[in-house]
Design a protein around this nucleic acid. Structure first.
Length: 489
RNA sequence: GGCCCUAUCGUCUAGCGGUCUAGGAUAUCGGCCUCUCACGCCGAAGACACGGGUUCGAGUCCCGUUGGGGCCA
């Protein structure tokens, strides 16, 4: 049944920061490989010299590793079919281009950019599809020899059959037929000796024994050219599976103009890698039991391509936020502290590092964090001194500033005299006793206190917050609030 | 424009001919909990793009239209 071992790959171009689309495709390659006991390969497609950089390559690998999508073979770990960087495989492509030439499946083309532009111009005017007109396809042996002798630079083009059709078998969509007349005589080898995507991709997938090409839908249109190449070489093509394309909210292909796409962004923002994987696993795929929260391992366990949907899913930040919050809430507090340090290296955290303070805040903040990054604004009043806020917030509806000042001053005095433990439940009893002595309602008093102590109208529960802030800071802040109100009235 | 892909609530999706007066999640709105927020719980509103077939029966199969998207420029 299993004729060929499952080997899949992702082939990112290191021309920019790690992209969420790369992670998406990597996830499904990974899940398929693992579920089949196959191999997952990373190959770097860096034949675009001008735009590729080692810096981006490292960033991409780092991001994939961060997500937990470990690969079996790749530029960093090596493997039996290396090298795994196309820039280190150049002679291979030249060799295979030569083979194509010899087999008559490709030809050299000496057309100048000017001529090509002129042809295109004409086709545009005649409203014809814009394709190479095949000028050099028909060069005689003598003409070719002459050009070669003169050492003129040339490109190598694929000789697409002028008739018939090329059928692409997509495992999700079935047979897709392309009229050969619609296909361009694609350039395979550029005049500088570098291969184009099409040649390098096919040669490498074959040499690396890739069994299934799982890639994004945007590649469907170039697949017939790849099929033609496999045929020309006499190679068995892999199984093609084109995943739907992630979309912006306006349904266009996901792009940085309309949606954050860098995995580095999501990491810095404080999204957990497991939440991102889970979220991507929900894009076009679902668990058999409709569970929405699942780990990478669980996805692998349950993985099957039958559950793929082909409509392009919109990358919805709102749902990601919810999911991320779920994962943050599930973290053991110690682990959350560790993640905060790992993912959010900031001056604030450095300051807190030597204290147990952070550990004490965590229970108050954990269920209020959509992302780790929200820690900064949520925790601000635990370390900022003095607090900055609008004193008007201290005054409840229907009360005057003067009244409020008196009640807060009273509370400060009451707390001053209080000698019990500075703890949640005890503080509540203490302040409820104080509440009795005023004519205020709990809601108003506690809101005033909340604003005085945190500078906000929304905070974690008041008494637990007071416990963490500590007696001294609480009393200082109450005095500050009273002073601010007195200055106002 | 040509070729190709695609189509269930705003969004992610379940559904693989009858159990669908279409289920879940998220977002939204309302309620409960409550010192506020959040979490949690309960509830409301919200979709099979349209038209033809096939069939006893279609969200589910086929064709077309329309919408969306990709590729080539």
């Amino acid at each position: 049944m299993s004729e060929t071992p499952v080997r899949v790959r992702i082939a990112p171009s290191p021309t920019g920061p790690p992209h969420v689309g790369t992670a998406y495709i990597a996830l499904f390659n990974y899940a398929f490989a693992r579920s089949q006991g196959g191999k997952f390969v990373v190959r770097i497609e860096d034949t675009d010299q001008a735009r590729s950089s080692r810096h981006y390559e490292e960033a991409i690998l780092r991001a994939l590793r961060w997500l937990g999508l470990a690969w079996d073979e790749g530029p960093d770990v090596g493997g039996p079919y290396g090298p795994y960087r196309q820039s280190e495989r150049l002679p291979l492509y030249q060799h295979y281009a030569q083979e194509l030439l010899e087999r008559g499946a490709a030809y050299r083309c000496w057309c100048s950019p000017e001529r090509l532009e002129a042809v295109r111009q004409q086709q545009r005017q005649a409203k014809l599809p814009l394709r190479y007109d095949g000028h050099c396809r028909t060069l005689s042996a003598a003409e070719i020899a002459a050009c070669l002798r003169q050492g003129q630079p040339y490109v190598v083009r694929l000789k697409v059959p002028s008739r018939g059709e090329t059928v692409v078998h997509d495992a999700f969509r079935g047979a897709i037929a392309f009229d050969n007349q619609q296909l361009d005589d694609q350039i395979l080898l550029k005049s500088d000796g570098f291969p184009t995507y099409h040649l390098a991709n096919v040669v490498d997938d074959h040499l690396m024994r890739i069994s299934h090409v799982i890639r994004a839908e945007e590649w469907i249109a170039s697949t017939p050219k790849h099929v033609l190449l496999y045929q020309a070489f006499g190679w068995q093509p892999p199984v093609f599976m084109h995943m739907p394309l992630l979309r912006n909210p306006d349904r266009s292909k996901i792009s940085k103009r309309k949606n954050p796409v860098s995995l580095d962004y999501y990491r810095r923002q404080g999204y957990l890698p497991e939440a991102i994987c889970n979220f991507l696993g929900l894009m076009g795929w679902s668990m058999p039991d409709e569970r929405e929260i699942f780990s990478l391992e669980e996805m692998v366990q349950a993985f099957t391509f039958e559950r793929i949907r082909l409509g392009g899913p919109i990358f919805d930040l709102q749902k990601l936020d919810w999911l991320n919050g779920v994962y943050i809430r599930r973290l053991p507090p110690e682990e959350l502290v560790r993640r905060l340090y790992d993912q959010l290296i900031t001056p604030l955290l450095h300051r807190l590092r030597d204290t147990l303070y952070l550990r004490r805040l965590i229970p108050l903040l954990q269920e209020r964090l959509p992302t780790l990054g929200d820690f900064h604004s949520l925790a601000a009043y635990f370390y900022q001194t003095p607090l900055r806020y609008d004193p008007a917030l201290l005054v409840p509806k229907g009360r005057s500033a003067r009244e409020t000042a008196n009640v807060l001053a009273g509370a400060a005095e009451w707390l001053q005299r209080y000698e019990g433990p500075w703890q949640d439940a005890e503080l509540e009893s203490c302040l409820r006793a104080y509440l009795e002595s005023t004519k205020w309602d709990a809601r108003s008093l506690f809101m005033s206190l909340r604003v005085a102590l945190t500078g906000r109208t929304a905070s974690p529960p008041l008494f637990a917050t007071m416990e963490v802030l500590g007696r001294e800071l609480c009393l200082t802040r109450l005095e500050d609030a009273v002073a601010a109100l007195q200055k106002q009235s």
